[in-house]
Design a protein around this nucleic acid. Structure first.
Lengths: 212, 212
DNA sequence: AATCATTTAAAACGATCGTTTTAAATCTGT
DNA sequence: ACAGATTTAAAACGATCGTTTTAAATGATT
C-alpha cells in the first residue's frame, strides 16, 4: 500500500470529476489520470464505470444517512419519553443539519454533496436509480416521523411537502451559477453557509407546517 | 414545406429525447432518426448540437417567461392602484401557475418543462448557462416584487428564499422516479397535477413569509 | 423555365469512449 | 523466498460521437 490506496484515489478523483462535469461527461481516462493511476485500474477495482459511481455514492451516503436516521430516532424517543409529539423543526434539523455539517468537513465532502443534489432529478436512470435506492428508507422514516409531528395533515400532503423540501435542499446544495446572479458574491465563507442552512430550515419548516 | 417543418420536427424530437435522456446522453443521430430527418439536417438548420439545445429552450421558455413577467406586472399595478402592497401569494401564483398551466398544454410542453427543471442545477455548463441567461431577468423582477411584498425582510434573505422556491419547483416539475416511492401511484391524472401545484404554492408562500 | 432553399443519401473525418487483453513490474503477507 | 494480490505499461477492441463533405433530388418562388 502506497501513500494512499489507489482505490481511494480513484474514488476521490471520480467524486471530484463527477461533481464538476456530471457522470456522462466524465471519462474513465480523465478519472484515472487525475488519480495518477492506470486506466486498467478502474475496471480492476470496480468492474465498470457504473459500479465506480455506486462506490462513490455509497462511501459517503451510507454513513451520512445513518447519521440522519439516528438523529430522527433521537427526536422521536425524546418526544416519546416526554409524552409530547415530536417537533417539526427538530425533525427538519435532524434531516438537514448533518448534510451541511458533513459538507463542511472536507473538500471531498462538499464535492460529493453536489453529486447527490443533482442525482435526485438526473435524467440518467443509472444515476437516479442508484441514488433513490440509497435514500428511499430514510425518506420513509422521515415521512412517518412528520406524520406524528403534523397529525392534522394528511399523509399524502406531507409526503408531497417532503418532496418540495428535498428539491429546495438539493438545489441549495449545488448552487453553482446561482450565486453569480446575486450581486455581492464577494465572500462565500462558512458564514454564508450558516446563513443558507438556517434560512433553509426556517423556510422548509414554515412550508411543512402551512395550513391545509 | 411538407406536413410539418423539418426544423420543427427536429425541435420536437430533440425536446423529447433531451428530457428523457439528458443532453449529453442524446446523440444527433437519435434525434434525426426520431424526427425522420437526415443526420445532416440537424447541422444544416442549427449549426451545432449546442445551438439546437438553445433553440429548444428558447422556443418555449421565451413566451413562458413573458407570460410570467406579465402576470407579475399585473399584480404590481393592481397593488399600486389600490395603494396596498402586493400580496406574496399572488406573486407566487404569477410565477408558478403559468408554468404548470403551460405544462398541461401538450405532451411536448410537459417534456420541455422537465428539461428546464433539471437545467438549473445541471453539471454541464453548456446546459446550465443557457438556462440561467434565459431566466435571469425574470428572477430579478420577481425578487424586486417580493421585496415590495415583504418589506420587513432583508433583500438577501428574500433572494435566498426565491432560490429555495426554484429548487422546490424544479424538483416538482421533473419528478420521475419519485412518484414510485409513494405507494398509490395508480393515477397521475391532471387531478394529481392540481394537487401538486396548489400544495407547492402554499408550501412556498409559507416559506417566503416565514419570520426572519 | 430557372433560381434558390431545402432535404436526402451515403460516406467519411478525427476523436473519444468503456472495456479487455497481455505482459511485466511491484508490493504484501506468510 | 515464495505466492498472491496489486499496479503499471501499452495497445487494441468495437462502438459511438459531432461534424463535414459531396452529390443528387426535391421543393418553392419568381
Amino acid at each position: 500500500m502506497t501513500q494512499t490506496d489507489t482505490k481511494t484515489r480513484l474514488l476521490d478523483a471520480a467524486e471530484s470529476l463527477f461533481s464538476q462535469q456530471g457522470f456522462a461527461n466524465t471519462s474513465l481516462r480523465a478519472i484515472t489520470t487525475a488519480a495518477k493511476a492506470n486506466l486498467a485500474a478502474a475496471n480492476y477495482h470496480f468492474g465498470s464505470k457504473e459500479a465506480l459511481l455506486r462506490a462513490v455514492l455509497e462511501r459517503r451516503l451510507l454513513p451520512l444517512n445513518q447519521q440522519r436516521s439516528d438523529r430522527i430516532d433521537q427526536v422521536l424517543t425524546e418526544a416519546a419519553t416526554t409524552g409530547a409529539i415530536p417537533g417539526t423543526e427538530a425533525l427538519v434539523r435532524a434531516f438537514i443539519e448533518p448534510t451541511f455539517a458533513f459538507r463542511r468537513n472536507s473538500t471531498g465532502s462538499s464535492e460529493f454533496i453536489s453529486i447527490v443534489g443533482r442525482a435526485m432529478t438526473s435524467a440518467d436512470p443509472v444515476v437516479r436509480d442508484l441514488f433513490l435506492a440509497l435514500v428511499h428508507p430514510l425518506i420513509n422514516k422521515l415521512h412517518l416521523a412528520l406524520c406524528l409531528a403534523l397529525p392534522h395533515l394528511p399523509s399524502k400532503l406531507i409526503f408531497t411537502r417532503i418532496f418540495f423540501t428535498m428539491g429546495a435542499m438539493g438545489h441549495c446544495i449545488c448552487f453553482s451559477g446561482f450565486a453569480q446572479m446575486f450581486k455581492d458574491n464577494s465572500d462565500s465563507n462558512s458564514e454564508d453557509d450558516d446563513f443558507m442552512t438556517n434560512n433553509l430550515i426556517s423556510f422548509v419548516t414554515a412550508g411543512l407546517e402551512a395550513p391545509c
